[in-house]
Amino acid sequence: MCNENLLVGTDTSDDAGVYRLNDEIAIIQTVDFFTPVVDDPYLFGQIAAANSLSDVYAMGGRPLTAMNVTCFPTNKLDLGVLEEILRGGADKVLEAGAVLVGGHTVEDKEPKYGLSVTGVVDPRRVITNKGAQPGDKLILTKPLGTGIITTALKGGILAPEVLDRAVGWMVMLNDKASMAMQEVETHACTDITGFGLLGHAAEMASASGVGMRLFAGQVPVYQEALELAEQGIIPGGAFANRNYLGERVVWDRSVPQSLRDVFYDPQTSGGLLIAVPGEIATKLVALLKEYGITVAGVIGEIVADHPGSIYVEP
Rank of each mutant, 00 (worst) to 15 (best):
L82T: 07
T70L: 12
G147W: 01
V126W: 00
V81C: 11
L115M: 11
K154T: 09
K154H: 05
L163P: 14
G114P: 13
S116M: 07
T70A: 12
K112I: 12
G119F: 01
S116E: 04
D78I: 09
T105V: 15
T146V: 14
M59P: 07
A132H: 07
V99I: 10
L138G: 08
M67N: 15
Y57H: 04
P134H: 03
T146S: 13
I139V: 13
G119V: 00
V93R: 05
D78A: 13
T151Q: 13
T105R: 15
E110M: 12
K130N: 13
L158W: 07
P160A: 01
L140N: 10
P73N: 04
I157T: 06
I149Q: 12
D164Q: 10
T146K: 13
G97L: 05
G155C: 04
A98N: 06
R125D: 02
T118G: 11
L94Y: 10
F72G: 14
G119P: 02
L140V: 07
N129T: 02
V99P: 02
N75F: 06
V120S: 02
Y113G: 11
T65N: 12
A96P: 06
K137T: 03
V126F: 00
I139P: 15
A166Y: 12
L153G: 09
L158P: 13
L77Q: 11
L163E: 11
G103H: 05
D78T: 09
L79R: 15
F72S: 14
T146Y: 05
R125I: 00
D164R: 14
F72R: 14
A58G: 09
M67C: 14
V126N: 00
L163D: 04
V126P: 01
D122P: 01
D78N: 15
P73H: 03
E83V: 12
G135S: 08
V106Y: 10
K76L: 15
P160H: 01
G135E: 03
A96S: 08
L86F: 05
L79S: 11
G89E: 04
P73E: 02
H104F: 08
D91Q: 10
M67P: 13
K112S: 13
I157V: 14
G131L: 09
T141Y: 09
K76C: 10
D164I: 05
A152L: 06
I149V: 15
P143L: 02
V101I: 13
R125G: 01
L100H: 04
T141S: 11
C71H: 12
K137A: 10
K142W: 06
L64V: 04
G60T: 00
G102R: 07
G97Q: 03
R124N: 08
D108Y: 14
L64I: 07
T128N: 05
H104R: 15
R125Y: 02
V56P: 03
T141L: 10
V99Y: 04
L64G: 07
T141P: 14
D55L: 01
G114V: 05
V106Q: 10
M59S: 02
D78W: 08
G60N: 01
S116V: 07
A159C: 06
D108F: 08
N68I: 07
I149R: 13
K92S: 14
P63E: 02
T74Q: 15
I127C: 04
L144Y: 09
P143T: 00
